[in-house]
Design a protein around this nucleic acid. Structure first.
Lengths: 236, 236
DNA sequence: TCAACTTTGTGCACCCGTTCACAAGTGCCT
DNA sequence: AGGCACTTGTGAACGGGTGCACAAAGTTGA
């Protein structure tokens, strides 16, 4: 049970945490796996298995005590300590990130905003003065930054990332549309808007195809002129 | 091979597509699975298996023709047609999305920007005039919108989502920190900044723990006062 | 105290995705 | 023409995650 929580579980813990926080604000004291699972959009069995990886919190016949579970998940995620974050790139997205309330709310502090553009440096965004990107190493060292957020244009991203890593940052959240190369001691997570849209487009397309196949089944065959090799068979 | 590309593969196709586009811009004509895999940050075997789901593009002994593969992946993702997107909520994040260049570049058109705040309605953002959220149904119907982007505050998200779905939208990209409930005919993808940060925090914490265990192995046991039941054993 | 009811925690079987390893196919050089 | 070097495409083994189903454990009410 201990010693190694599955990645898939870790990825869901923040979702549970948010659902629990909402419940706590509504004054709910205890919650069953069924209810919490519904609020988190997962199956109840999966939820129970996930929580069992943290330990045996929860009472049979009753459910889980909301406050207590919030604390346990927070602790497991490391939210009981404050993580210092530096945001590099204060364009449209950087602005949004710096102003994002829920960003700071729970265990995260924005240590500094950095940008390479002189016109932006010195501006105040989200209560912080934007500093030149040259201060990167200094900021990371002095403020003890652990997490770097890359919100720069694509061409600058790898360079900024390299500097973050060299300065001692071991986790990077990347919004730039490039694959960042890092040593395997560093963890990178990527958020890519156009990737998400493209995945939606794929499913949208399939859905349209399925709708056609329901209406006019014979058409489906005509839409797939090729057995799989692809290159041939396009001509009528 | 045909009839059903695995979800995991679909999620990686946009990454391959971007890497290929970059290669094409650099004038590269053909690429091996090894090279492309490196550029996309995956293993070469995985890449080959992914591409094999689309068909047998690629030449043994040579590699893949870049232009051709770009076309095939684009077609498979449905990017040969234009998808119309409506963005609801033009706050900090909505601004960023509306101005995001790569957003529009490839197969996606922003049909409209909507907001509930009178002070924002009428403003021009990214070349479009922000319209009142009351126009939602009208916009979706008239413009034939397929994809809705929810960038509203959390409390408004579910309501906006319901209206999008009722108006005929079948894919939703959700930036609000809530779990959207939709009929299972609708696909939702969620992008959540604080979730990503929390996942990073977890790994960061583990990494710190590992570093300690390397330096002072005995300490690890002391840091785990409890065999796993959790509730007991906290007192000194 | 006991029985009926509720809910957790988990063993087990199944499925999807990843990785390895190699046969089959292609181009190049002699 | 033939062999060599290279690369794709895929069968097969493996591993992790999911969902089912149920025993264990606790609560409520008589």
């Amino acid at each position: 049970m201990r010693q190694g929580i599955p990645d898939a579980t870790v990825a869901r813990l923040p979702v549970y945490l948010r659902a629990l926080t909402t419940l706590a604000e509504d004054g709910t004291a205890t919650v069953s796996s069924e209810e919490l699972a519904a609020a988190a959009g997962v199956g109840s069995a999966k939820l129970r298995k996930d929580l069992s990886h943290l330990g045996s919190y929860g009472t049979r016949g009753v459910g889980y005590e909301v406050e207590y579970l919030v604390y346990q998940i927070s602790r497991e995620l490391g939210l009981t300590q404050d993580w210092r974050v530096v945001i590099v790139g204060v364009g449209n997205l950087g602005h949004a990130l710096a102003n994002y309330g829920g960003f700071v709310s729970r265990g995260f502090t924005v240590a500094a905003l950095l940008d390479a553009d002189d016109r932006i440096v010195g501006e105040t965004v989200g209560g912080l003065v934007v500093r030149p990107v040259d201060d990167l190493e200094e900021v990371v060292a002095e403020q003890g930054v652990h997490i770097g957020v890359v919100a720069t244009p694509a061409p600058a991203a790898q360079d900024v990332c390299d500097r973050l890593v060299a300065a001692g940052v071991t986790s990077v959240l990347n919004f730039a549309p490039v694959v960042l190369l890092v040593p395997d001691t560093v963890m990178v997570r990527k958020v890519d808007l156009s990737t998400e849209l493209q995945i939606l487009a794929f499913h949208e397309q399939r859905q349209v195809a399925n709708r056609l196949s329901v209406d006019v089944p014979a058409r489906v065959v005509a839409l797939e002129p090729d057995g799989g090799t692809g290159r041939a068979g396009v001509s009528p």
